[in-house]
Design a protein around this nucleic acid. Structure first.
Length: 916
RNA sequence: GGGCCCGUGGUCUAGCUCGGUAUGACGUCCGCUUGACGUGCGGAAGGUCGUGCGUUCAAAUCGCGCCGGGCCCA
């Protein structure tokens, strides 16, 4: 085996090439595992669907985490010999995409409204074709093993068909309805209704204005002078004062409400108040909703522009007066001067006029939460309009049941509580959007008899009314909320509604939904609700929620940040490789918790890659091309040396631990333990000790160590492959052919711990030996003796004699001991001018005649003596307290033993001081 | 208003469910090495675990209060 590995690890030369090869060979498709004879119909299978990115999107740090985790899960399951499918795809992202294209067109001087619906949608498709490649190429650079032959887009014909099917079924079951309700209207860039979830409340520093409404009396029948003349309310004697944060909405007031118990205003109930500016007379009503403590205890009621007033309006059968157009500008017909004004301009104008009329009695600063559009940040305008809704309560209950009974598990568990809290208080879901880009609502209206027609899902267009046979019908203008189609994702990508589709039969329900906790409600909740309703099954058994990626100080990563490049996954991949990025993402990820991404971790990861590369080079350069190294199960067990047994024990312990970490989604520990094994045990100790054998001309059983080196490497590659797919594949491919049973490491069987190799005694003995090596090195260091200068060593032990005989060779070589002067005896007379070491109750001496500086040794001994004394006092105190009576016996015994060992050490060191 | 998360050496971080000597990384300092390692190895310094009280033989860990940072829902 010749190694063609470059001297330095260079991700650039391997990642792209390998990904192309994987794709070309079709390794990502589940069919491949069958073809290779790894799986069959009876095999377990694993399926995960990608959290579909927006078609307009660019790969950002959030995606990097998503893709790292999901590909980790996928590759792991694939290596566990399951038939594995990871489905990629993209989302048409209604509002987001429409906004982007509208803006782009505007740059070209084109108004999308002039273009018309059809032409505009064509433009968006052009845009889609152009940008689709960008996000998929970027995703591929992460190394994800998606089956690209099964890539979907939410507007694909098959997925649109699924959307119509879902709509049809829910509609005819009465779970989708159309009606006039108050919705969140975004009058900013989006100009559409949006769902509750798409709004966010922001505290606004506003004001509470106290406004006087005159009351009709016998003496005053209404305003006699024009608005803003200063004499509008002249002659009025009775007033009711309301407090409001939105004075401009008074144009749409249709009542004033107070409570029956109001000391001042109760007597006005039943009378008529006159709305300023418009001069309309409205009733003064009583309603429990009014909080007598708030403001003046009287409330202006604007049923068409406030959610609470909407309810009151319905209850009292009030008039719903819409005062705004779709951009929240004042409609004509109220007050000429305000017509066409933006709501905030109107507010200013109306306040000025109210002032003129002397109708403002007070102004207080007031902080209140105002809903904003999550996407364009415009202040939401509550608006009454005809929209489509999903009735969610009947859907929520079964979804909650699946989570309650564990058919779907949410990780981390605490997110369950959030899930239930939201589901229990769920509101109906507004699914219609006043956009052009998306799935058009599959409902037609007859122009003659007004019949509402929701045809069979195979019908793509309706031309005659089934009721009156009229031929003048038109389709609903609105499109569906994007989340309606993404809510079907786990099965619309598997051929649903065709339940005989082989993919559906084989892979549904899927296994995992991996996504950020921020979209638990947007997506997961709806997938569960719709999935259970439409397929009768929960769409996946595990919901794994990860946290957000933030910068190293915990701030949100945004495009406007300084040094944004260092957080840009595309740049990171280019400079350090996807393996490094994936490693940082995975090794820092704890379920449900935010991760602070520190750019310097990427260096650490990159160095790790290089270390892996270098260790591999060492092993492979020590094996010649014509050499046949036996496999691990072919070597003679009696030829195993102490370090061999140790590393095999450690390796199998590691495999066992990794398995448990994987089972518990503890990726942080998994990566940490593997790294620590690889670097601090395999490289630092085993490889170093292997040199003793490999460089020894007279040693004839080198194949044993070579076999173990290769075995450990191969196992390590496999354990790390789900995390770092590229470097592990590259290096695995360079291993001798007899070790490989599959064409790619992707299908190599996941390691299983061989308990017979695990030997805690060997592991412990090794630690003791390593401690001795360290101590001898330290002695040399303290006396300025070069590391490689051979020194004598005398160990006084009877109980551990066997162990030291066992590792004598290695100890002598690594610690640079003079082999002829290495003595193990049950009694050692402390040699003069020597350094003394005490470890675990075993004293040892390093005679250093001619090299030792007595004063230095005194200082050295004193330092460790002090430390030992301090420690022993602490333990003594503890043992004298109630600890020894009340604590468990094992603990007390352990402390006693510790104390004894320390006392022995102190004795030894004091003795050393005496004889110096 | 209700709920959730977080606060650990200079920096970031593990541990908290299940109480018993606080993990790792970066950085700093000292030394060694360069025939796998654009480096690597060895060693050192550095923490009253936000704060107060309580429970306990024993608290980073459990309970209550407070302070600070963030998030979600209303």
């Amino acid at each position: 085996m010749t190694s063609d590995l470059t001297k330095i690890y260079d991700h650039r030369t391997i990642e792209k090439e390998l990904y192309e090869w994987w794709e070309k060979e079709g390794f990502f498709a589940p069919e491949k595992s069958k073809e290779l004879g790894i799986t069959n119909e009876k095999s377990e299978r694993y399926c995960i669907t990608i959290p579909l990115p927006n078609i307009t999107g660019q790969l950002h740090s959030g995606h990097a985490l998503v893709l790292s985790l999901e590909d980790l899960m996928t590759r792991y399951e694939r290596m566990r010999q399951k038939e594995t499918l990871y489905i990629p795809g993209t989302d048409h992202a209604g509002i987001a995409t429409q906004n982007v294209v509208v803006r782009e067109l505007l740059k070209q001087g084109i108004n999308h409204k002039d273009l018309g619906r059809e032409k505009f949608v064509e433009k968006v498709w052009e845009w889609k074709h152009k940008y689709h490649a960008r996000i998929t190429e970027q995703s591929k650079s992460m190394g994800i093993s998606c089956d690209w032959s099964r890539e979907y887009f939410t507007l694909d014909p098959s997925l649109s068909r699924a959307v119509r099917e879902a709509f049809y079924r829910l509609y005819h079951k009465g779970l989708i309805y159309r009606g006039e309700y108050m919705v969140n209207w975004c009058p900013g860039r989006c100009v559409t209704a949006i769902s509750d979830l798409e709004t966010e409340a922001i505290d606004e520093q506003g004001h509470l204005w106290y406004i006087k409404y005159p009351i009709i009396t016998k003496a005053w029948k209404g305003p006699q002078h024009p608005w803003a003349s200063g004499k509008w309310a002249q002659g009025a004697t009775d007033f009711i004062v309301v407090a409001t944060t939105r004075p401009e909405t008074l144009l749409g007031d249709s009542a004033v409400a107070t409570v029956k118990s109001h000391p001042k205003y109760a007597k006005f109930i039943g009378k008529q108040a006159v709305i300023p500016a418009v001069g309309r007379s409205v009733p003064i009503i009583a309603d429990q909703f009014v909080d007598p403590e708030f403001g003046t205890g009287a409330l202006k009621i604007t049923p068409a522009h406030d959610p609470n007033d909407f309810e009151i309006g319905k209850k009292h059968n009030l008039e719903f007066i819409n005062i705004f157009n779709e951009n929240a500008q004042i409609l004509p017909g109220f007050v000429e001067a305000y017509s066409g004004l933006d709501r905030f301009e109107c507010r200013k104008a109306i306040l000025k006029d109210l002032e003129t009329e002397g109708l403002i009695t007070d102004i207080e600063p007031y902080v209140h939460a105002e809903p904003h559009c999550q996407r364009c940040h415009a202040t939401i305008e509550p608006r009454v309009s005809i929209q489509w809704f999903v009735k969610t309560k009947p859907l929520a209950e079964p979804a909650m049941e699946k989570v309650r009974n564990g058919e779907t598990v949410i990780i981390p568990e605490r997110e369950r509580r959030r899930f239930f809290q939201w589901m229990e208080n769920i509101h109906d879901w507004c699914i219609s959007r006043q956009l052009w880009w998306g799935h058009r609502i599959p409902v037609w209206y007859c122009d003659e008899c007004c019949e509402e027609i929701c045809p069979e899902p195979d019908v793509e267009t309706v031309s005659t009314c089934p009721k009156c046979k009229g031929s003048s019908v038109h389709q609903d203008e609105d499109v569906l909320d994007t989340w309606f189609s993404s809510g079907l994702w786990p099965y619309s990508t598997l051929g649903w509604p065709n339940t005989d589709h082989p993919d559906y039969k084989r892979f549904y329900p899927t296994d995992t939904r991996e996504t950020g906790y921020d979209i638990l409600f947007f997506w997961v909740a709806r997938e569960l609700m719709m999935g259970i309703e439409l397929t009768g099954k929960t769409p996946y058994h595990t919901v794994y929620l990860h946290g957000m990626i933030r910068d190293e100080k915990g701030r949100k990563i945004s495009k406007s940040m300084e040094n944004i490049d260092q957080y840009d996954p595309l740049i990171i991949i280019k400079d350090f490789g996807a393996d490094s990025l994936r490693y940082v993402m995975i090794s820092n990820s704890v379920p449900g918790l935010d991760t602070n991404y520190d750019p310097k971790n990427i260096d650490v990861a990159h160095k790790y890659c290089n270390k892996i590369w270098q260790a591999s080079r060492y092993v492979l350069t020590n094996i010649t091309s014509d050499e046949i190294v036996p496999k691990i199960d072919e070597i003679e067990l009696d030829k195993l040396k102490f370090p061999d047994k140790w590393i095999l024990s450690r390796l199998n312990s590691l495999i066992r631990d990794v398995q448990s970490y994987m089972d518990n989604y503890d990726y942080l520990r998994m990566t940490r333990e593997i790294k620590s094994f690889f670097w601090s045990e395999f490289c630092d100790w085993y490889i170093e000790m292997s040199k003793i054998f490999l460089y020894d001309e007279s040693y004839s059983d080198k194949h044993v160590q070579k076999a173990i080196l290769l075995h450990v490497l191969e196992t390590f590659y496999k354990l790390m492959h789900p995390v770092m797919p590229f470097i592990t594949e590259k290096l695995w491919q360079t291993l001798p052919d007899n070790l490989k049973t599959t064409p790619t490491i992707m299908y190599a069987p996941w390691p299983i711990a061989q308990e017979s190799f695990i030997d805690p005694t060997i592991e412990d003995s090794f630690l003791l030996m390593a401690d001795f090596v360290r101590e001898v090195r330290r002695v040399k260091h303290d006396f300025g003796i070069p590391l490689k200068t051979l020194v004598p060593l005398q160990i006084e032990t009877e109980t551990h004699r066997e162990l030291f005989e066992l590792c004598k060779n290695e100890l002598v070589k690594i610690a640079f001991i003079d082999e002829d002067k290495f003595i193990i005896d049950k009694k050692i007379v402390p040699p003069p001018k020597s350094a003394r070491i005490v470890l675990r109750g075993i004293p040892a001496f390093v005679p250093l005649a001619g090299m030792i500086d007595i004063e230095k040794e005194k200082t050295r001994i004193n330092t460790s003596l002090e430390k030992a004394k301090k420690e022993s006092i602490k333990i003594e105190k503890k043992l004298q307290s109630q600890f020894s009576e009340r604590a468990p016996k094992e603990l007390v015994d352990k402390e006693r033993q510790n104390l004894e060992e320390l006392k022995f050490k102190i004795e030894q060191l004091e003795d050393q001081l005496k004889i110096l």
